[in-house]
């Protein structure tokens, strides 16, 4: 266990170093923007995977919390009464309460019914955003920009500072989620995914545990929304539309749901795919659709999951071959 923590810390440090060095090596703003997008959507996808991959709860409405993060943060900053750190904490707290209310209703339902009710709540929130024009700006989104007053000597109006800030927040959230992924709580979640009845017999309060992870995942998604709102200096109803949830699910499936970092890999792949396909062809949907079909029908799992499985199989066959060889040598 201890070596696991050390390894996680090492991987985290390498990741931070990589994310910080990349824009220095390639000082184009486009790369920085790309990475901020990947981090914001990566947080959305990873937090959703706490539900999908870890607990087996397929939520179709996770983007509701992404949007709630963006809007709450934007509105708090526009009110001009609080600084960025306080606004962020209040946003995460507020979204957690929202997720608690929605989750308390949703987690009692099973399978596809859970998916549908989360979708219903998300679309409900989306139409509130569209309807409450005086507060949210309706379909135009939150206009007027989101101010970024300096705090503790950090001025986020500088592009590089903003980038570093995003990296730090991103890594912090990843660390929290990694902790959950490895904790006894995380293993309880896996048990609920694989056999809820047994989990219940062993004394786990299934509804309560599910609600716990639902709230946590919602809060983490809101941080993704905050990062995106901070970056684009606005919030738009599309953040909470069902297509955003669909994209997050797609990232998970593309990357892989059983590897912790899989969804982020999926986010990178999807963004790259989007980017290059639009450069080379107008028929973006045709290519993307074909790629999905190949992955789903060919690999039958996410790319990262496939690679992990493939490496494992290779190691096993090698081990088998080695043992056969050593037996022959002994004989």
């Amino acid at each position: 266990m201890k070596s696991g923590v050390l390894r996680d810390l090492a991987v985290g440090a390498v990741l931070v170093a990589l994310l910080l060095v990349l824009p220095i090596l390639f000082p184009k703003p486009a790369l920085r923007d790309f990475l901020i997008y990947v981090m914001a959507y990566g947080l959305l996808a990873m937090s959703l995977n706490l539900l999908v991959g870890l607990t087996g709860l397929v939520s179709f409405g996770h983007a509701a919390f992404f949007a709630s993060g963006a809007y709450m943060f934007g509105l708090l900053m526009q009110s001009g009464t609080v600084g960025i750190p306080v606004a962020m904490l209040a946003t995460v707290g507020g979204t957690a309460v929202l997720a608690l209310v929605i989750g308390a209703i949703c987690v009692r339902l099973k399978e596809i019914y859970f998916s549908f009710i989360t979708l219903a709540f998300q679309m409900f929130i989306h139409s509130i955003i569209l309807t409450w024009v005086s507060l949210t700006g309706g379909d135009q989104g939150l206009r007027g920009g989101i101010p970024r007053p300096p705090f503790l000597g950090i001025d986020l109006n500088d592009a590089m500072t903003l980038y570093v800030f995003c990296v730090v927040v991103f890594i912090l959230c990843i660390a929290i989620m990694r902790q959950v992924w490895r904790s006894p709580f995380g293993f309880t979640l896996r048990m609920i995914r694989d056999n809820p009845t047994r989990a219940n017999f062993l004394g786990a309060d299934v509804v309560r545990v599910k609600l716990g992870i639902f709230v946590l995942a919602g809060s983490m998604a809101s941080v993704g929304g905050v990062l995106l709102a901070l970056f684009v200096s606005g919030a738009y109803p599309e953040f909470g539309f069902w297509t955003t949830s669909g994209e997050a699910i797609f990232m998970i499936m593309l990357g892989g749901s059983q590897l912790f970092i899989g969804p982020v890999i999926g986010a990178v792949l999807l963004r790259l795919l989007d980017h290059f396909v639009t450069i080379y062809t107008d028929h973006h949907g045709l290519v993307l659709g074909a790629v999905i079909l190949v992955i789903v029908l060919g690999l039958r799992q996410g790319v990262a999951d496939y690679i992990v499985d493939w490496l494992e199989r290779r190691r096993e066959t090698r081990a088998a071959a080695a043992s056969v060889a050593s037996e022959k040598g002994a004989a």
């Binding site: 998916s115 669909g246 699910i249 998970i252 499936m253 993307l288 074909a290 999905i292 079909l293 789903v296």
Partner: peptide, 11 residues
């Protein structure tokens, strides 16, 4: 699982 069906249909 339903995700696979969703993805195939999305494609």
């Amino acid at each position: 699982d339903v995700l696979m069906q969703l993805l195939v249909c999305y494609a």
